[in-house]
């Protein structure tokens, strides 16, 4: 355990641990991650307030930028990579993303459908009289 390397086992890596043992590249990784995250954040705040772009595209742009920034955080801060030593972590993440997409997408779909099929509230009130 005196070594900087934690991987006694060459085939696996704990989530959050890095392949790289030297300080220099690790430091650069965090600096690059912070730079990209700040850039994406600044872009989405700028896009939200600007009238330079076509207005209906703004929500899509904000969501795309948010997903990109989550990817940056996963790679540069949480060190989830596509390497063979990360397979278990990536598979768990993929399952988590699947559940999140199902919950959010399914909720929005079903609730929009119910809203669409429901009578307006004043008509429901009239029928109850």
């Amino acid at each position: 355990m005196t070594d900087v390397h934690h991987s006694h086992n060459p085939v696996d890596l704990a989530p959050g641990d890095e392949d790289e043992g030297r300080i220099g590249p690790r430091l650069i990784g965090y600096v690059v991650g912070l730079g990209l995250a700040l850039l994406l954040t600044a872009t989405s705040f700028f896009v939200a307030g600007t009238d330079l772009v076509w207005q209906p595209s703004i929500p899509v742009a904000i969501i795309v930028l948010a997903i990109a920034q989550m990817g940056v955080h996963l790679v540069f801060f949480l060190h989830i990579t596509t390497g063979a030593d990360n397979t278990n972590n990536v598979l768990a993440l993929a399952f988590g993303i699947m559940i999140v997409v199902l919950v959010i997408g399914g909720t929005l779909w079903i609730m929009a459908n119910l809203n669409h099929n429901m009578l307006p509230m004043d008509q429901i009130m009239r029928m109850q009289r």
Binding site: H8, A14, P15, N89, A92
Partner: peptide, 17 residues
Amino acid sequence: APKRIVTGYGFWIFILS
């Protein structure tokens, strides 16, 4: 697997939940 990997993986599952 070493304990560090088992612990980290378990906590990763908690974070995903």
